[in-house]
Design a protein around this nucleic acid. Structure first.
Lengths: 128, 128
DNA sequence: CTGAATCCCTGCCGATACTG
DNA sequence: CAGTATCGGCAGGGATTCAG
């Protein structure tokens, strides 16, 4: 191997995996898949809320007051479509829709944790 | 604690850290910092190339043929500004500019690996 | 209460052309 | 060779309005 194995353990996964040989943004690339799920403003905050437990639409709205109904709806649809969130409509009045993460959605926890860890250690991005 | 600790080890970091209590997209949130660095098309591919070792502008262009000069320049400037990449101009002719990751940049390896792992396990996002 | 439809504004990114 | 300058198309997302 000609490249350097730097700090972390020599996991053969990413930079040298033959599947990582794409030369342009490929929707089938695992990294792209993950980025697509997390794409968009507010998305990670919605996921964070749901990592704490299931929530209704209203509860999410209360937790993220500056998030408009439309975008919240968009994000939940996006996450539901991605198989990360399950929607459950409650019959009766007032109508409540409950959202919770699927097992795959809970699997995003470590991903966000990795982002958190790196960002926390990297705090001052452009100090001067 | 009232919430469920699901699959992975009970790392106290993300969903319950008091710093994670933001109710709107906050540039100081570690996750946002990481997302800001990785934001934009092509960015992760450029980082992947540099994870394999230092590259010149031309080498990067050859490795990613569909990436235009302007966007490559943009990405490298963005990553340099973020402290993830170091630019080194070589005097002489023809002019060569060499790019390599800083230690912080190499620290992105585990982050991308986490994304890779999740995406690989989640392959069929919307089958039907 | 939930969430889809519409409108508009903004920022991204690709293409092209030009400078050191 | 290594960028910067400029323009234009397009999608993201915020506000508002309407429907189930």
């Amino acid at each position: 191997m000609a490249h350097q194995m730097v700090g972390h353990a020599a996991r053969p996964g990413l930079p040298d995996d033959p599947s990582a040989a794409v030369t342009e943004p490929d929707p089938a690339c695992p990294v792209e898949i993950t980025l697509a799920v997390l794409r968009g403003r507010w998305t990670t905050l919605v996921v964070r809320e749901l990592l704490r437990g299931g929530r209704t639409f209203s509860e999410l709205r209360d937790a993220l007051p500056a998030l408009s109904d439309k975008v919240l709806s968009d994000r939940l649809a996006q996450l539901t479509e991605a198989g990360v969130v399950i929607r459950h409509r409650r019959t009766g009045w007032p109508p409540r829709t409950h959202y919770r993460l699927t097992p795959q959605g809970r699997g995003l926890g470590p991903v966000l944790q990795a982002m958190w860890d790196w960002g926390a250690e990297h705090r001052p991005p452009s100090p001067e």
